[in-house]
Every structure is written in structure tokens, then in C-alpha cells.
Measured scan of single mutants.
Amino acid sequence: YDEVAAQGEVVRKLKAEKSPKAKINEAVECLLSLKAQYKEKTGKEYIPGQPP
């Protein structure tokens, strides 16, 4: 859960800094992968601010 939240912060920071699109896309792919792992382990969708 904490990893997903941390990666979400990374994506937000990159977007706020107007980073190159390729770098943002890479961070988003990582975030989506973490969300998929979270769902696989818990059986639930990741919802920000609602730990399992």
C-alpha cells in the first residue's frame, strides 16, 4: 500500500515539474504495475487514503 502511495507522489511530482513525457510515462507504468500487484495480493482495488 505504501509503495503505491509513494509512486503516486513521484508521478504527481514529475507532472508538476513538467518533466519529459517519457519519464512521466515510465513512472505511470510503474504505478500501474504496483496497483496490479496490490490487487493481486489483497483482492481489492487500490483506493488512496484507505489502507487495507
Rank of each mutant, 00 (worst) to 15 (best):
L31F: 15
Q7C: 00
A6F: 02
P20S: 14
A16E: 14
G43D: 08
N25G: 08
K41S: 12
E17R: 09
T42H: 14
L32P: 03
C30K: 15
K35E: 08
G49T: 09
Y46D: 05
E40P: 00
E3T: 15
A22I: 13
E45F: 01
L32A: 14
E40Q: 11
L32T: 14
T42A: 08
G49E: 14
K13T: 02
E9L: 10
K15E: 12
P51W: 06
P51I: 01
Q50Y: 14
P20N: 14
V10S: 08
N25H: 08
G8P: 05
K44P: 15
V11I: 05
K18L: 06
E3S: 08
S33G: 12
Q37M: 09
P51S: 08
K13G: 02
V4R: 00
K18H: 13
S33W: 06
A5T: 12
E17L: 11
Y1V: 11
P20F: 01
N25R: 13
Y46C: 04
P51Y: 01
N25C: 03
E26Q: 12
E29S: 09
Q7Y: 00
K15D: 06
Y46H: 08
S33K: 15
I24A: 03
K35D: 03
I47R: 11
Y46S: 02
V10D: 03
K18A: 08
E9I: 05
T42V: 07
R12A: 11
E45V: 08
E45R: 04
V4Q: 03
A5G: 01
V10W: 05
G8Q: 15
E17H: 06
T42E: 13
Q7L: 01
I47K: 11
K35F: 00
E3P: 07
I24K: 04
E3A: 01
G43C: 03
K13S: 02
Q7D: 00
A16M: 13
A6H: 10
L32D: 14
V4E: 00
G43S: 04
V11A: 07
Q7A: 15
K41D: 14
P48K: 07
V10N: 04
E40Y: 05
C30F: 13
E26K: 12
I47Q: 10
Y1H: 01
E9T: 04
Y46R: 04
I24M: 09
A16I: 07
A27P: 03
K15S: 04
I24D: 07
K21R: 13
K21M: 13
R12L: 10
P52M: 00
E29F: 02
A6W: 04
E29R: 12
A27G: 03
K44S: 15
K13H: 03
V11E: 04
K23P: 00
